[in-house]
Design a protein around this nucleic acid. Sequence first.
DNA 1: CTAATATCTCTAGTGACTAGAGGATCAAGG
DNA 2: CCTTGATCCTCTAGTCACTAGAGATATTAG
Lengths: 146, 146
Amino acid sequence: MTEVTIGKAAKLTEIKVPTIRYYEEIGLIKPFTRTESNRRLYGVSELNRLRFIRHARELGFDIDAIRAMINLQANPEKSCAEINKIANTHLADVNRRITGLQAVKRELSRMIEGCNSGRVDECRIIEVLQDHGQCQNEHSHLNAKV
Amino acid sequence: MTEVTIGKAAKLTEIKVPTIRYYEEIGLIKPFTRTESNRRLYGVSELNRLRFIRHARELGFDIDAIRAMINLQANPEKSCAEINKIANTHLADVNRRITGLQAVKRELSRMIEGCNSGRVDECRIIEVLQDHGQCQNEHSHLNAKV
DNA sequence: CTAATATCTCTAGTGACTAGAGGATCAAGG
DNA sequence: CCTTGATCCTCTAGTCACTAGAGATATTAG
């Protein structure tokens, strides 16, 4: 038997046990074996899929994108171009987020520099945060999901 | 009267009406005037606080950090050092996220390059995502709240 | 054999909102 | 003055991707 229980699968894939069950609930990882006493058993391919999900999540793909990729995976006759498109969309998003965070970083650094650890009512951080006019950058993109 | 209703406040601060009510519900913005017919009225200081909240959120501070800063603000005799600390902690977090996203970007670019638009079962995206060993970077930090 | 650990299902909570129902109130045009 | 449409009120429920806990059963180590 190469099959493992959920706890072992959790360790092997570095996904928490409840999260694996959650992924099952939302249909990301389909039926696997169960023992006579109803315990989940995972084989190599399930573990691979879990690793795939984990890695994709770490890369910031949302569940829908992962679901799409899994569906494509299940139909290998389809073109890779679709997955490529998903990845490209995501890359654009990642670039947007990097740019945004760099702006945030600049502004935070500037704020912190201005703070001389005096009294709060002289604190430039609060001042800056209250007055958007002092902000040199657009931050609206930060409302995007991460 | 310099006081404005919630709709006007929403426009002035660029925070949506239900979000302003939500901020009230969680205690970020305290009692303001109400009209006889129970409508919320916001004055200059409330508008400033709302702008402060919005700007801080845009910079990625979470509600707890904002609450902490507001509490410090309410005690202006306290040292600015605490606010400075919050900002510095946040800056470290932002830096961590930038580094992580850059790693993600590298891998995505690599994946897209490797994808030859052929069949999915030859596509490196799925391959790479399944095999964490091919990943040159740590991504675990991405699980951090954003 | 017993005690600790692991698993099961189920429900509810998280953060930071967002959406919608159903009703009251207000401002403007006729 | 009256009606119409916009705005406001409260309340509940939904979102995403989990996370936590209760209470029951099953497995494993000593």
